[in-house]
Design a binder for these strands. Structure first.
Lengths: 333, 333
DNA sequence: ATAATATTTGAATACGAATTCATAATTATA
DNA sequence: TATAATTATGAATTCGTATTCAAATATTAT
C-alpha cells in the first residue's frame, strides 16, 4: 500500500519542524503566515492528512460519537439518525452506528465504544439505557438519552412529554364522543409506554370511562397488526385505538381494514411520532408530532458545547410536541 | 475524569511486562496459561480495555468500516444498514455511518474517513461512487460498491442484475396483456436506472410496443407521487407503470388512487426492492426482490477475508433476485 | 543427564501527532 | 538604539499498544 505521509514528511518538504506542521493542522497555536503557507503547500502536494488515531492518542479524545438506535427499520429512527448525522457531521463529528436488537451484541459493542474513547453516546434504546449509561459514564463518556429517560439516575436526557401528549390525545378523543377505548402499546417496561399509558388512563378515569383495553407488544408494524386483529376480534365495539407509535398504528390500521372495518367511520386510530408515512393518503393518520428537530438540536448543542463529561450532570429536558390532525379519527357525535 | 488504565498498569499489577499484556489482548503470540490468567484477572480488576487508537496507530489499520448510504430514509437502505451492522459487528467491526444527501458534505467526510485509516468503505450511493472510490483506493482503502457499479473503473461491486430483472418484469406485464407502458425512474444517470430502463425498453421493442413513457425523478415517495400524478393526467390510457424502486411505487400508487383510479383494475404497478412496506395490505405491491442478504454476505466475506486492498482487484458480482407477485398487477386479457 | 530445539518473556523501539519547555525571532516600549 | 515583552519555532517527550530482537525458560531428543 502506498504509505501515507506524515507530519514529518510535510515538515521536511516545507523546511520546518514537525511541531510546526502539527500546529498548523491542530490549529492550537499561531504560526507565521509564511511558514503556514509553505506547510499547506507541502501538505497538499503530499496529500497529507493527519492520522486521526495518533491525534486521538495524544489528545485523549476523538471526534467520534456513538449512536445506539433501537430499531433502524422504524422510520422514526431512520429520520432521527439522518438528522443527527446532518448536524453532527457538519460539526466534524463522526457517527459510529449501532443498531441494538439483541442485548448480547449491545454489551460487547458498548465495550468497544469505550476502546475508541468516543466523545459521547446517544442512546435511543430504552432497554439498554440504564446499564449502558452507567458503564459509559464510569469511563468518562457523556451519555445522552434520546426520547427516553431513566428515573433513578442522573442521566442527561431529552424526551417528549409523553404524559401530556397522551392526556391531550385522550381528551381529544373523548371530546369527539368516543366511548370504547384501546391502547396498543410498546413494551410495558419502557418510560415512553408507561407515561403514555398513565396520561391516557388518567383522563379516561377522570371522565369515568371504564371501557378501556390495553395491549402491550413491540414497536413494530407486525406487533400492531397482530394486536389490533386480536383486539377487534375480541371487542367489536371498540371505537377508537391509541397506538404507542405510528408504525404500530399503521399495522393496526391495515389489520382493521383487512377485517372489513372502516377507518375512521367505525374505528378511530391515533398514532405517535408523525413519521413520513402517517401523512401518506393510504393512512392519513392523526398522530402526535414529537419536536424531533429541536430535541436533536438540544443534544447537538450539549455535545458541541460541553465536550467532556464534567458538564454531563444529568440534565433532563422535556419538550411538548403537538397533535397533527388528519383523517383517521372521526367525531362520534 | 477517571483515567483509563493502560496495559502498563495491568502489567504492573500482574507482575509481568507490558509486552506480555499486549500479547494477551492482541492474541498474536502464545502466552503461558499461568501468566495469561494473572493478566486477565488484573485486567478485569482494573476494567482495562486496550486503547483502540494506540492499537490502530501501531498496526496501521482499524476495525472501522465506513458505510455511505444515499438516503437512509428509504426503507430499503435502512434494512441494508441493519443487516450490514448485524453482520459486521458480529465480526468485531465498527460502522461509521454517513448519509449522503449533499455532495459537499460527502467530500469532506470521505477525507475524514481517510484520517481514521478505516479498513473498507461500502458505498450505496451512485452519485458519489466513482470520484470517491478513486480517492479512497489511492489511499489504500478497500471500496465496495453496493447495488451499483461503475463501468470504466475496476471497482469491487455487487449488484442485482437490473437489466435481467427489468426484462422479466416487462415480459410479465406483456404476457398479462398490458398495452400502454410507463417507467417512473430514479435519476437517469445512475447505473440502476440505466440498466432497468434498457432491459425494459428492449423487451417492449422486441414486442413492437411503442406506447412507452419514461419519467425520471428521484428515488423518493414524493417524486413517485408527483410523476405518477403528472403521468396520469397526461396519458389516461396508461395501463401499467414500472417504478424504479418500491418507495417510488408507493408514492405512485397513492397518487393514482387519490386521482380516483383503481389499482390494479385500471393501472398495474410494479416496484423494485421488495421493502417491508410493499407487503402491507394497503399496497400489496408486486415487485422485484433483490437478494439483499446474499449481496451483503458477499461483501462481508470479502471484507473479513481480505483485509487489505491488495485483493481489491475490482471484482464485480451480479446477482439475480426474483419477482414477488402480489396484487398490484392485473391481467388485461 | 546433556545437548538441541522450541517456547515465553522482557527491554527497547516504532507508530504519528500534540505539547512542554527552552530558545530564537519579532515587536513594542522607554 | 537598547531593553523588555511578545510571539514563533524546534528539540524532546508523551500518549498506549504492537512488535522486534535477544535472553531466559521449558521441552524434546539423544
Amino acid at each position: 500500500m502506498k504509505r501515507n505521509y506524515t507530519s514529518e514528511d510535510v515538515a521536511k518538504l516545507a523546511g520546518v519542524s514537525q511541531s510546526t506542521v502539527s500546529r498548523v493542522f491542530a490549529g492550537t497555536t499561531q504560526v507565521s503566515e509564511k511558514k503556514k503557507k509553505k506547510i499547506l503547500e507541502a501538505a497538499t502536494k503530499l496529500q497529507y492528512r493527519p492520522n486521526a488515531h495518533a491525534r486521538s492518542l495524544t489528545t485523549r479524545k476523538s471526534s467520534m460519537i456513538g449512536i445506539i438506535v433501537r430499531n433502524i427499520r422504524n422510520p422514526f429512527y431512520s429520520a432521527v439518525l439522518e438528522i443527527f448525522h446532518r448536524r453532527l457531521s457538519a460539526l466534524g463529528y463522526h457517527l459510529i452506528f449501532i443498531n441494538s436488537e439483541n442485548e448480547k451484541i449491545q454489551d460487547k459493542e458498548i465495550g468497544q465504544l469505550l476502546d475508541y474513547r468516543i466523545q459521547a453516546v446517544i442512546i435511543t434504546d430504552a432497554l439498554i439505557a440504564s446499564a449502558a449509561a452507567e458503564k459509559l459514564k464510569q469511563h468518562g463518556i457523556a451519555v445522552f438519552l434520546f426520547n427516553r429517560y431513566t428515573k433513578h439516575s442522573n442521566n442527561t436526557a431529552v424526551y417528549c412529554d409523553n404524559y401530556l401528549a397522551a392526556r391531550q390525545i385522550a381528551t381529544y378523543l373523548i371530546e369527539l364522543g368516543h366511548k370504547s377505548f384501546a391502547f396498543i402499546s410498546g413494551p410495558h417496561d419502557t418510560s415512553t409506554t408507561v407515561d403514555r399509558l398513565k396520561g391516557f388512563r388518567e383522563v379516561l378515569e377522570k371522565n369515568k370511562i371504564k371501557d378501556f383495553i390495553v395491549e402491550a407488544g413491540h414497536y413494530t408494524y407486525e406487533s400492531g397488526y397482530k394486536l389490533a386483529q386480536e383486539l377487534m376480534l375480541r371487542c367489536k365495539d371498540i371505537d377508537c385505538i391509541f397506538c404507542g407509535n405510528d408504525i404500530i398504528a399503521l399495522g393496526a390500521m391495515d389489520a382493521i381494514r383487512v377485517m372489513g372495518f372502516k377507518i375512521p367511520e367505525q374505528v378511530s386510530v391515533v398514532g405517535f411520532d408523525n413519521i413520513d408515512m402517517s401523512d401518506w393518503p393510504a393512512y392519513s393518520l392523526t398522530t402526535w408530532e414529537q419536536p424531533v428537530e429541536e430535541m436533536i438540536e438540544w443534544v447537538v448543542r450539549k455535545i458541541s458545547g460541553h465536550p467532556d463529561e464534567k458538564n454531563n450532570k444529568g440534565e433532563t429536558i422535556m419538550m411538548k410536541g403537538h397533535l397533527v390532525i388528519r383523517n383517521s379519527v372521526k367525531s362520534r357525535k
